[in-house]
Design a protein around this nucleic acid. Structure first.
Lengths: 366, 366
DNA sequence: AATAATCTCCAAAGCGCTTTGAAAAGGTGA
DNA sequence: TCACCTTTTCAAAGCGCTTTGGAGATTATT
């Protein structure tokens, strides 16, 4: 097998055909006879012909690539939820022959990176990750006129662009209701960064649920940070050893929830006997293959669940579709998270339900 | 600001210069006067000129992009350790103006994907992730003659290609010695998939350390799987509730170690009082910002530590350097992991050290 | 002043593909 | 047989950049 690359010209020469015919044969155009097409395809395979991506891109104006700009979090960290999104999207890209381009950007600096990728013609469309409530990227991308799909939504006018989002508000309302139905009244919120729209909506749901039962949200037990393990640990530690500790924790991701469990264990408490824990579960595959996380096949955490990987897949599909049909209307999908009951929630402990100085029961255990 | 893209021709026309001069001015060639260069740069900025990536790539033969092929794990999962690698590499790529291309491939199918990316000219170099002990990708890439750097090593001839690796063998030897110095004799190994060279070397180190003290490795307490949380849980559960349970666990990543902790807690055990746990810590940023994972600023896990993010950074640097100097020799770096003492290791519990039916003490606690 | 050397700048030829407009080849009906 | 389609193939013109081989203009050398 020859090492030097064979290009269209050489292939055409070898076949005794023109470049036009060869190109058309390979790209499935109808104006070439099937027998010729078969000959061409066979020769292409045999000579190991691969069309140059940049030449094709230059000629067609299409890059056959999709851009992702991932934002460094507060800890200069790439959000680990991203691997699962990537797994979903990457699968679709592979199927449709699209390339995936990745760039890092500091928070707030995404625009420049998008602009560069786009106006240099490296990508045909982009995905927007982690939209803020009032995100400048949306009007910016709209002004560029490039196809894009947002993973999540912004605050206003969610009709003017394509997005896929979980109904975060309702998810957290239901989660909160579920805990209150079990008797819990004091529920801590360990949320993501509330500049991000998803976290903002989650807080809204949490607050609305509380208020609906006449409970005033207490900022002392509400947190908002990057969703990492140590954050969960710290927040749980603070709130469980503080005065008037909550009987339940609502946690925005499994990652901090693991930290919460570490704190709980360290304090000699147990879930759900001493404290209930309900998490939002993105079905991160490295934490949860299927739902059989405990011996009995019952998931460990009680959770609001929605697969981020599926979201990645769907968003990729939508974007490719949008690239294919330029004039199309924006599309939206709002997904409901499912409430899956696991091992970490239970009724309010009796000692507290009685109404004695709440929290004493917790502290005395240590 | 005009919406239609301005290309080199328009920019040259606007300036009353030839395309040659404009191109040279922008690319820093010496044969253009500084005053002209300044004029050109200013106009380029003002007209918002961005050279087309595909045109440049076609003309130069350089893609200014680097390819990464990530393998789906056994759970069709993208290794979460990858986010941190990505954070490190992406930073370097951004600095040098390189694009990062990502593709997914099923285990064993990476070659085709590499071949496609490379021979279509999409990338100037590639990174090999998770090399097997006898990985066909290395001879394959070598035969293609494209620059590549391996994150890790293969079994044989590590001189013929560039790589950066942790001294996994020594790391696990030291870890094992550390545990044995504390009195532990029965140490379980919760390893990664041993087809992968890093995991293979880790097992070698573990076995060598045991043998050096006359202990025969016991396959009953040695595991080898994808390093995810539930795996750690399952393995720990099995081994701690089985007969003759180990007094210490050596775990190949913090992810399964979290599962181990979950099992330990569920069994009513405590670390290090009942069981010691030592993990290999890749400094995943979502689990560990700095080392202050506990209130006292002492890391939670006792660990062999080496930053995967730093590895990503260094590998990117090496690869870019290699792309720049075609004829160069392969480069290697072997990094030593540091042993950091945390809260999860301690001396062998007395009850066991006495020599009573080992493991009874553990089981009776449940 | 004439020649050589240096600076600046340019026209034009690719890079490898797609695509337009047209021509040759083959098949039909009169 | 010829005129008229339809099918199949082709030559050539881009796409937007880099780069080669010169050509003017300017300055230095004899």
């Amino acid at each position: 097998m020859s090492r030097e690359t064979v290009n269209l010209r050489k292939l055409a020469e070898a076949l005794g055909l023109s470049q036009t015919t060869v190109s058309r044969a390979l790209n499935g155009f109808p104006e070439v006879s099937e027998v010729t097409r078969a000959r061409v395809i066979e020769a292409a395979r045999r000579l190991n012909y691969r069309p140059s991506a940049s030449a094709a891109s230059l000629a067609t104006g299409k890059a056959r690539a999709i851009g992702h700009v991932v934002t460094f979090g507060d800890h200069m960290m790439v959000n680990p939820h991203f691997t699962d999104f990537l797994a979903g999207a990457g699968e679709v890209y592979a199927r449709f022959g699209y390339e995936m381009l990745l760039r890092l950007a500091p928070a707030g600096g995404e625009e420049d990176v998008y602009r560069d990728m786009i106006s240099r013609g490296r990508v045909d469309g982009v995905v927007v990750h982690g939209p803020l409530t009032d995100d400048p990227r949306i009007p910016f991308l709209r002004s560029l006129g490039i196809p894009f799909v947002v993973h999540g939504r912004c605050g206003e006018d969610p009709a003017g662009y394509s997005w896929i989002d979980v109904n975060n508000r309702r998810a957290f309302m239901r989660a909160c209701d579920f805990l209150m139905d079990l008797g819990h009244r004091r529920i801590a919120l360990i949320n993501g960064i509330e500049r991000m729209n998803f976290a903002d909506r989650r807080r809204q749901g949490y607050e609305a649920a509380l208020m609906a039962r006449g409970i005033r949200p207490d900022p002392a037990i509400m947190f908002s940070e990057d969703m990492v393990e140590p954050y969960g640990y710290r927040a749980a530690m603070e709130v469980l050893t503080g005065r008037d500790p909550p009987s339940a924790l609502l946690v925005s991701s499994v990652l901090p929830a693991i930290g919460v469990m570490r704190a709980v264990a360290e304090l000699g408490l147990r879930a759900p006997a001493d404290v209930s824990i309900l998490v939002f579960d993105d079905c991160l595959s490295f934490l949860q293959p299927g739902s059989a996380a405990t011996p009995r096949g019952i998931p460990f955490f009680t959770a609001m669940r929605s697969s981020i990987r599926l979201a990645g897949r769907r968003i990729a599909e939508l974007l490719i579709e949008q690239i294919g049909t330029p004039g199309g209307e924006p599309k939206h999908e709002l997904w409901e998270a499912e409430l899956v009951v696991g091992h970490t929630t239970g009724p309010l402990p009796v000692t507290e339900a009685v109404g004695s100085v709440s929290g004493q029961s917790l502290k005395s255990r240590r």
